Simulated assay, not measured.
Amino acid sequence: MADKKRDRDKQGHDAERRQQNRDTATELERWGETEPAVPPDVLAEFETELEAVRFPATGAELVAAIGDHELQSVDGSYSVDALLPETAGETFDSPTAVRVQVQRPAVAAAMKPVVEASKTLSNVEFSWTQRKAYEKTFQALKAIDADDNDEGVEAISDWIVEWIHTNEQLPRSRDVRRQAAKFCRTNGYQVRSDEWLGI
Rank of each mutant, 00 (worst) to 15 (best):
A2I: 13
D3K: 02
K4R: 11
R6Y: 14
R6S: 15
D7R: 11
D7Q: 12
D7K: 12
D9W: 09
D9H: 11
D9Q: 12
G12V: 04
H13A: 15
H13R: 14
E16A: 05
R17F: 05
T24V: 13
A25P: 00
L28F: 05
R30K: 09
E35Y: 06
E35V: 00
P36D: 14
P36Y: 10
D41T: 05
V42L: 06
L43N: 06
F46I: 12
F46Q: 12
E47L: 11
E47R: 14
E47G: 12
E47Q: 15
T48R: 08
E51G: 02
A52R: 12
V53F: 08
R54T: 15
A57K: 03
G59Q: 03
E61T: 04
E61G: 04
A65G: 07
G67V: 09
D68R: 07
H69N: 07
Q72G: 04
S73P: 05
Y78K: 05
Y78M: 11
V80W: 02
D81R: 07
L84N: 06
E86W: 07
E90A: 04
S94M: 02
P95L: 02
A97Q: 08
V100D: 12
R104E: 15
R104T: 14
R104V: 08
V107N: 00
A108T: 05
A108W: 01
A109E: 12
A110G: 02
P113V: 07
V114F: 09
V115L: 10
E116K: 01
K119F: 09
K119Y: 11
K119R: 15
T120Q: 12
T120G: 07
L121Q: 11
V124I: 12
S127T: 13
W128T: 10
T129Y: 01
R131N: 04
R131E: 14
K132R: 15
K132E: 14
Y134P: 04
E135N: 03
T137G: 13
A140P: 08
A140D: 13
L141H: 13
I144E: 14
A146G: 03
A146I: 08
A146T: 07
N149K: 06
V153K: 00
E154G: 08
A155V: 03
A155N: 11
D158V: 00
W159F: 06
V161D: 01
E162Q: 05
E162H: 01
H165Q: 13
H165Y: 10
E168S: 09
Q169Y: 03
P171L: 02
D175T: 03
R178H: 11
Q179L: 00
K182C: 07
F183L: 12
F183S: 07
R185G: 14
G188T: 08
V191I: 13
E195L: 01
I199P: 06
